[in-house]
């Protein structure tokens, strides 16, 4: 018996292009066989190895200008600086350079379709 994955709905513009973007630059894998529904919309499921499972549904892009974290799609990495460097080298627009917060190191960037993302390397400071 396999455990059912739980997907977080994420409203993005151009979901099909966003999937390609996430697969190309951030090691996500799409799950074409997955038919999932969020609210009343069909979405495209994508996941990464850190357990971030998104259901991308058509919607208005998150607010890149004000960096409203509630509206930014957040996912995890094990090495924020490496990913930041790769994104920068690939010409991806960086909205906020890496910064240290109470939960770890994070960087904010956007895709060419106006969607904004927060990439987080969680750090357990209680052990450090």
């Amino acid at each position: 018996m396999t455990e059912e994955k739980k997907y977080r709905p994420a409203r993005v513009s151009e979901p099909k292009k966003v999937v390609k973007f996430l697969v190309k630059y951030l090691d996500f894998f799409d799950e074409p066989g997955t038919k999932s529904k969020s609210a009343d919309k069909l979405g495209i499921a994508v996941s990464n190895k850190f357990g971030d499972n998104f259901l991308l549904v058509q919607g208005s892009p998150s607010n890149t200008g004000s960096h409203n974290v509630d509206e930014i799609i957040t996912f995890n990495t094990d090495n924020c600086l490496r990913d930041y460097h790769q994104l920068k080298s690939a010409g991806i627009k960086i909205e906020q350079i890496p910064r240290y917060t109470g939960r770890g190191l994070e960087v904010i960037f956007s895709d060419p379709y106006g969607n904004c993302y927060l990439l987080l390397e969680k750090r357990d400071y209680s052990e450090a």
């Binding site: 090495n79 600086l81 490496r82 930041y84 460097h85 080298s89 240290y100 190191l105 390397e121 750090r123 400071y125 450090a128």
Partner: peptide, 27 residues
Amino acid sequence: KGDMMFNLAHIRNLFHSEINNDLLMNE
């Protein structure tokens, strides 16, 4: 401790990997 410890662990991993990337190492 803290971020210094985490970042030094990354430096160590990159240093001992096959990847030779000056820009990333400088970051």
